[in-house]
Simulated assay, not measured.
Amino acid sequence: MHLSALYRFPLKSCKPEPLQQAAFDGLGLAGDRRWMLVDEASGRFFTQRALPQMSQLAVLWNAKGGVTLSAPGLSPLDVPLPQDIETNLRGVTVWRDTLRVPDAGDEAARWVSEFLGKPTRMVHLPDERARWLPSGYGAIEDRVSFADGFPLLLIGQGSLDDLSSRIGRPQEMLRFRPNLVVEGAEPFAEDSWKRIRIGTMEFRLLKGCSRCILTTIDPATGERNADREPLTTLKTYREREGEIWFGQNMVNDGPGVLEVGMEVVVLE
């Protein structure tokens, strides 16, 4: 088995950044989901679930922590890390979590508001303001950025191939927005893994990933599939207690660097 793909999502629910090599820190993949778009009035987070056009917003992360935004019809915009953090905090909500994080400023807000067509602010998550994992999962020191619940998502290529064969047409891996893709395992082998090693890094797999309507959005066009695939087929054989499972949420034990092609070893 080997690591066949790596993806970073610098801005939550926007386009991924394919990587050949990636560093990992205390919040997972460095630069992953450290930025987020929120409703200007309420601070509630935005995602493709309600705003599928977010799938067309491309984001490149840089080593200083800032990002470059680009989208059809708009000039690219460089957004640096917010300064004067303590005087520039905005209250935001991610699912059940409420927190105060630095706002990216008015220029970024104008750009993302024009793109989405509604008053929007862009915010950043410093390491020291990271969220806790969902209750009952992980260790006391585990933290997560603006990701839905866990720092990392792993999917086996065999699992996607199995799904594609059942649907009758190829499905894009990026519908499921993984950070790591593993090739060479049987379909859904990752469901039984508890600990793995890739290169010199070790990871704990904590829970299956429950899938939602976001997987029915074509990552290339931002359009929803009228037949609600792949959810329709997944429901026939991957539903457990009213939820549809595909992929495994996990955390990394300590920092390190991964590279596409590295061997994957199941430890437990």
Rank of each mutant, 00 (worst) to 15 (best):
E128P: 00
E183P: 01
S145P: 09
E239C: 11
H2T: 12
R110M: 01
R195N: 13
D218Y: 10
T47W: 06
L74P: 00
L3H: 07
G247T: 02
A109L: 02
L116T: 06
L152K: 08
H124E: 01
M250H: 06
V59D: 02
D103S: 12
L74E: 08
D106H: 12
G65K: 03
P10A: 04
D84A: 14
M201C: 15
S159A: 15
A50E: 10
Y7G: 02
G208A: 14
G168K: 11
F9L: 08
R100C: 01
K64Q: 15
V251K: 05
E190G: 09
Q21I: 13
T221H: 08
D78L: 00
L234M: 13
G208E: 14
V260A: 12
Q48L: 03
E239G: 05
Q20D: 14
Q56V: 01
E263V: 13
V79H: 04
V38H: 08
T221A: 10
P80W: 01
G136D: 09
I85A: 12
G261Q: 03
Q83L: 03
N62Q: 13
W111H: 07
G208W: 09
L174N: 13
E259H: 08
K64M: 02
G184P: 13
S159M: 07
P134K: 06
F188R: 06
A63S: 14
V264I: 12
P187E: 08
E107F: 00
V144M: 10
Q248V: 09
G158L: 12
R211A: 04
A108K: 00
L37R: 01
T87D: 05
A50R: 13
E186A: 15
T233F: 02
K64G: 03
P72C: 06
P52G: 03
G31H: 03
P119W: 08
E239F: 03
D161E: 15
D161Q: 14
G43S: 06
W245H: 13
R197E: 15
V182P: 03
V79W: 04
Q48N: 01
R224P: 11
V67F: 01
T68L: 09
A220N: 12
D32Y: 04
R110V: 03
L205W: 13
P134C: 04
R33D: 11
R169E: 15
C212D: 11
F188N: 07
I140C: 06
E86F: 02
D148M: 02
L37K: 01
R121S: 10
W111Q: 06
F146Y: 12
F246M: 11
R110S: 04
L81Y: 00
I217Y: 11
V265K: 12
L234D: 02
R224E: 13
R8Y: 09
A41Y: 00
L152T: 11
R90V: 03
A104K: 05
R211S: 03
C14D: 02
M250C: 15
K235H: 10
T200E: 15
G66C: 06
L163C: 09
L29C: 11
M201K: 14
V266Q: 14
T200F: 07
A220C: 02
R8I: 13
E107C: 00
L133G: 06
D106C: 00
W193N: 09
